[in-house]
C-alpha cells in the first residue's frame, strides 16, 4: 500500500520531567507513555502539556514510544499501524523474530510479552508499550547460547532454521510456565509454531532436553 518509510534512528530523550528535550525535527512530537499522552513542544519544554489520555493518534503521525526489549528501554517513533514485528526488525534491527505468514498462523514471529509467547505480527507496537518484550537475542547469556538455544543445537531441532527463533521463544515461554512438561504438554505448547521442514520430532526432543538441563 504505502511505501515503507525509514525513520532516522531516534536518540533516547534526556530525562526531563516537563517533556522531551532534543526533538527539533517536528514542531510537535507526541509522546505516548504509560497510557497517557503528553505533548512536547520543540525543545521548549516550558510549554509542554499533558493531553487527554484518550486523545486520538492520527493515522499519519508517528508517535514517540519507549519499548522494553530484552531488558533495555528503546525509544522509537512508530506509526499506529506498525506491528511489533516491524518495529523489532526494521527499527531496532533485532531480526531473530521472523516474518512468515503475518497472520498468526506460522509462529515464526513468536516473542515473549510479559513471559508469555505471543505473535509479534498480530501485536501493534503501541499495544506492547509498558510490557516486557523478549526476543531470541535476549536469551543469550553473554556470548553463550541460552539453554533452550543450546538444546536446539544439540538435538538438531531444525533444518532450514527459519522458524527456529520462533520455536525457541515458544519453548522458552512454555518452560517458564511449566518447567517439567510431559511429551503431550510439549506438543501442545509448541502447536502454534509450524516447521515446513517437518523437524518436529527433534524440536520436541530439544524442548525436553532444555527442560532437563534447566532443572539441572
Amino acid at each position: 500500500m504505502c511505501p515503507r518509510k525509514r525513520k532516522p534512528p531516534v536518540t533516547p530523550p534526556a530525562a526531563n520531567p516537563d517533556g522531551w528535550a532534543g526533538f527539533t525535527r517536528r514542531a510537535f512530537i507526541k509522546t505516548w507513555s504509560a497510557g497517557t499522552l503528553t505533548l512536547a513542544v520543540g525543545h521548549n519544554a516550558m510549554s509542554s502539556e499533558t493531553a487527554q489520555p484518550d486523545e486520538t493518534l492520527a493515522a499519519d503521525e508517528p508517535v514517540q514510544l519507549t519499548l522494553d526489549v530484552n531488558g533495555r528501554p528503546h525509544a522509537v517513533l512508530v506509526e499506529p499501524r506498525w506491528t511489533l514485528l516491524h518495529v523489532l526488525r526494521e527499527e531496532l534491527g533485532l531480526t531473530a523474530a521472523k516474518s512468515g505468514c503475518e497472520r498468526g498462523e506460522c509462529g515464526a514471529c513468536t516473542v515473549l510479552i510479559d513471559d508469555l509467547p505471543r505473535y509479534a505480527c498480530l501485536t501493534l507496537a503501541l499495544e506492547a508499550e509498558g510490557r516486557r518484550i523478549e526476543t531470541a537475542e535476549g536469551l543469550m547469556d553473554g556470548g553463550q547460547l541460552g539453554q533452550v538455544q543450546a538444546s536446539f543445537m544439540k538435538e538438531d531441532g531444525l533444518q532450514c532454521g527459519y522458524c527456529t527463533p520462533g520455536q525457541i521463544m515458544a519453548a522458552e515461554g512454555l518452560l517458564r510456565q511449566n518447567p517439567e512438561p510431559t511429551f503431550d504438554e510439549i506438543r501442545r505448547g509448541m502447536s502454534g509454531n509450524l516447521c515446513r521442514c517437518g523437524a518436529y520430532a527433534s524440536i520436541f526432543s530439544a524442548v525436553a532436553d532444555a527442560a532437563t538441563h534447566r532443572k539441572g
Binding site: 500500500m1 504505502c2 515503507r4 497510557g35 489520555p53 484518550d54 486523545e55 486520538t56 493518534l57 492520527a58 493515522a59 499519519d60 506509526e79 499506529p80 499501524r81 506491528t83 516491524h86 501493534l124 503501541l126
Partner: peptide, 20 residues
C-alpha cells in the same frame, strides 16, 4: 504493511463507546 489508521486507547468505557 497495514493501511494507515488512527488509534485511541480510551481510559474509560464511556470514552471507548464515544470513540466508536
Amino acid at each position: 504493511m497495514l493501511t494507515p489508521f488512527a488509534y485511541v486507547r480510551p481510559a474509560s468505557l464511556q470514552d471507548a463507546v464515544a470513540a466508536l
